[in-house]
């Protein structure tokens, strides 16, 4: 049982639906206590990868091991020790907040009315900032409250590994901040976490290590800082304004840099920003924003700017 070194390891994992390859020969591993992010545009294969981890989708090929259990063969035992926050809330609408926690505990064979479980549920209500809402119906909760309850529900069995599929999609910034704060608290408690997201800020703030997926493949992997260093110039200058075309045609400084044009804005990626900034300061009909390169720049460079739907 305790002979495994990686909490999750997958090797050569593939899955196709009706000729279309959704996950194409991916391999990765997640260590104890690590927060691992799976990034990618819509349809990249993130959710299918998570479903395979959970044993809910059988892979076509590859070897998959979670918490020392072969998946999908031993998925049921494995699921005793994980918590899942699905992309779509599936809270039980016929139950109150506290009944949702109790009922979910019962699916693990835990006694929902034991003293230990009562105490655990109290702690989870505090953790999710839902103590005042303990008896409320699910219908009356805001989107953020529902997500927090789903997170609390995923913790009811005190899992070693948490799997979150887009945990903050659709939430307002305040609700998102609170979820992030809670996830960081869980990290201090030594849990391991895998999440998918397409919010780069979320990935950058929460994850120790990331893999970027596109078209079913892992196209880059590393720490957030590493990925930025490896894949993109350190400085970004976003330039816009009436004189943009003229400047791009005539500037000798910008012609030496990598420039990406998106509508009315030019993104100039640079190793040495000083000459650009001083030139731009002298042009009246241009505005610009100078910033450090971030994960979003890496993501857009690797996966392209065209819309995915």
């Amino acid at each position: 049982m305790d002979t495994y070194t990686d909490i999750v390891s997958l090797d050569g994992l593939s899955k196709s639906y009706a000729e279309q390859c959704v996950v194409n020969n991916i391999s990765l591993s997640v260590k104890q206590g690590e927060y691992f992010g799976l990034l990618g545009p819509n349809g990249a294969g993130k959710t299918t990868t998570l479903r395979m981890l959970l044993g809910m989708t059988p892979p076509d090929s590859g070897v998959l091991n979670v918490l020392g259990h072969a998946i999908p063969e031993q998925a049921q035992q494995m699921r005793c020790n994980i918590g899942v926050v699905p992309q779509m809330d599936n809270l039980d609408p016929d139950f109150s907040v506290i009944e949702n926690l109790r009922t979910y505990a019962s699916y693990f064979g835990l006694k929902p009315h034991s003293a230990a479980m009562q105490q655990r549920i109290e702690e989870l209500l505090d953790f999710a900032n839902l103590r005042a809402k303990a008896e409320a119906t699910i219908e009356s909760l805001s989107g953020g409250m529902k997500r927090r309850l789903t997170l609390a529900r995923a913790l009811v069995n005190d899992p070693q590994l948490l799997i979150l599929d887009e945990p903050t999609t659709g939430l307002d910034p305040q609700a998102r901040q609170l979820i992030w704060q809670r996830l960081r608290e869980l990290k201090r408690a030594g849990r391991t976490l895998i999440l998918t997201t397409h919010y780069m800020e979320e990935a950058q703030r929460l994850c120790d290590r990331l893999a970027i997926m596109d078209h079913g493949r892992i196209i880059a992997e590393g720490t957030p800082a590493n990925l930025i260093e490896q894949h993109i110039e350190p400085h970004v200058i976003e330039v816009y304004g009436a004189g943009l075309n003229k400047w791009l045609d005539n500037s000798t400084v910008s012609s030496q840099e990598r420039v990406e044009r998106l509508g009315e804005t030019a993104f100039v990626y640079s190793h040495d920003e000083a000459p650009l900034v001083s030139e731009l300061c002298q042009i009246d009909d241009l505005q610009f924003l100078h910033r450090r390169a971030n994960l979003e720049d890496v993501f857009l460079k690797l996966t392209g700017r065209e819309l995915r739907e």
Partner: peptide, 12 residues
């Protein structure tokens, strides 16, 4: 309601 899917992420 996706109730079953929720149950299937528990050990059922």
């Amino acid at each position: 309601q996706d109730t079953w899917i929720g149950m299937l992420t528990a050990p059922l």
